[in-house]
């Protein structure tokens, strides 16, 4: 565990608490893509199935359980509790266009051709693109509540912070994980436009608005 990795995990945790806070205080899931949240459930379940056969640390297991539980809880809030506040007509990104290529990538790029490793690779690729329905929705509405942009910033920062972690681990442990690194760079890249507007507008006290 190094500082980049730890800050990345904290950022990921923070993003979920920000999202829960947004939904609970506004009593609404307006502006949040259900499709993206559903993809995260798939990502976490696919990757963290190893809870059943691999023990790393208490930290690791607790985080995995938290990410599975919180992502399922968010789906419950969106689909049942605050269902009327969710507008499916603007959340239209076709997720099969993400799922199928990720499955193919996982079948080609994996460290061992067995069920658990292919599933792990699938979850890494899927996580990289799972934000697309959300970004697509943002693009369509052209604006977002401040709290939603803080959620996205924390979520984007998480994988961005893993990049210096991988560099650090390469030099200290000689560890290289080309699949995670490639997918992580793609994932961070998808946030660049968002980060630009976030830093130049939201953090300067303005509203998040995309140019028409």
């Amino acid at each position: 565990m190094n500082i980049f990795r730890f800050l990345g995990d904290l950022s990921h945790l923070a993003s979920i608490f920000i999202l829960l806070h947004k939904i609970q205080t506004t009593r609404s899931c307006r502006g949040i893509s259900f499709r993206t949240q559903a993809l995260y459930v798939v990502v976490f379940i696919a990757r963290y199935l190893d809870l059943f056969f691999r023990y790393v640390s208490l930290y690791n297991s607790a985080m995995k359980l938290f990410f599975i539980a919180s992502s399922c809880y968010i789906l419950y809030l969106m689909k049942i509790r605050y269902r009327p506040t969710h507008d499916p007509s603007i959340d239209t990104f076709r997720v099969e266009y993400l799922l199928a290529p990720c499955l193919i990538l996982a079948l080609i790029f994996n460290y061992k051709f067995n069920f658990a490793e292919v599933l792990w690779s699938f979850s890494i690729w899927l996580e990289a693109v799972a934000i697309l329905p959300q970004l697509f929705m943002l693009q369509r509405t052209g604006e977002a509540e401040n709290i939603t942009t803080h959620y996205l910033a924390a979520l984007g920062a998480y994988r961005a912070l893993y990049i210096p972690n991988w560099i650090y681990r390469y030099f200290t442990e000689g560890l290289v994980d080309p699949i995670a690194v490639t997918a992580g760079i793609v994932q961070t890249g998808l946030y660049l436009d968002f980060f630009y507007v976030y830093f130049t507008k939201v953090l300067q006290g303005q509203k998040f608005e995309l140019p028409a």
């Binding site: 990795r5 995990d9 990921h12 190893d50 691999r54 790393v56 640390s57 690791n60 985080m63 995995k64 990410f67 460290y111 490793e117 792990w120 893993y162 972690n165 681990r169 390469y170 442990e173 000689g174 560890l175 290289v176 994980d177 080309p178 699949i179 995670a180």
Partner: peptide
């Protein structure tokens, strides 16, 4: 260098 997933990452 060893190549592969660390599996200790989240």
């Amino acid at each position: 260098a060893s190549e592969g997933p660390s599996h200790d990452e989240l």
